[in-house]
Amino acid sequence: MTCVLVVDDSAVIRKVARRMLERMGYAVEEAEDGLDALNACQARMPDAVLLDWNMPRMDGLTFLKTLRAAPAGRDAKVVFCTTENDLDHITQAMAAGADEYIFKPFDEPALEAKLAMAGIAR
């Protein structure tokens, strides 16, 4: 089963994303920020990461750059999921190795479409 790591400092967002992803047939893990996410990836690399931008301790962009610098982190698909909706943020994310970008708030059909666009199979 495809595992998606949901990385967001909001427990509500993690819970909503978990419910949507589980309904779609994914296994789900959670992390509160980029540092927790790196630790989770070192323990078991997920197939995909749903990633917030603004978080304490380590933001999403720093996490993504660190993940992509590690050999094992090059294959995980990453979808930024954030309120940052300007072209500069999107450009930075894609340049750092994001596979897709979705804006908050999102619904299940939009999330499912972005996962498909990123090539994340169930």
Rank of each mutant, 00 (worst) to 15 (best):
R18E: 05
D75F: 09
T82D: 01
L21V: 04
R19N: 09
L61N: 07
T83E: 04
L111P: 01
T2P: 03
M58F: 10
D88C: 07
D36H: 11
E22V: 11
C3G: 05
V7A: 00
L5K: 09
R23H: 11
V28C: 10
R74A: 02
L67H: 06
F103P: 00
L111D: 00
E22A: 10
E32R: 03
R74Y: 01
L35A: 11
K77P: 03
A43F: 02
T66Q: 15
G119I: 13
A76W: 05
P71N: 11
A48E: 04
K65Y: 03
L111V: 03
I120S: 08
L87M: 13
L67T: 05
G97I: 14
P46F: 09
L115A: 10
P71W: 00
E100R: 13
E108S: 10
G73V: 00
D75L: 12
L38M: 14
A43V: 06
V78A: 04
E30D: 13
N39I: 11
A40T: 04
L35N: 07
Q42I: 00
V6Q: 03
K104D: 07
G97L: 14
Y101E: 13
D107W: 10
M24L: 15
L51A: 07
K15I: 09
A116Y: 09
E29V: 04
L115Y: 10
E22P: 06
V12S: 00
M20T: 04
F106P: 05
V78R: 02
T62H: 13
V7N: 01
V78D: 03
I102A: 05
M94Y: 07
V49S: 04
V7S: 00
D86T: 14
R122I: 10
R122G: 09
A98L: 12
M24A: 12
V78C: 05
N54P: 06
A96S: 14
F80S: 07
A48Y: 02
R57Y: 06
M55V: 07
D86R: 15
A40Y: 02
G25Q: 14
Y26V: 06
T2F: 02
E112D: 13
C81P: 05
A17P: 08
I120P: 06
N54K: 14
L115F: 12
L50I: 11
D99K: 12
L21M: 06
D59C: 05
T82E: 00
T66E: 15
A95I: 09
L67I: 08
M58R: 14
A40W: 02
D9L: 13
T91R: 13
A96W: 08
A40N: 05
L67P: 05
D59S: 05
P56A: 14
T83F: 03
D107Y: 10
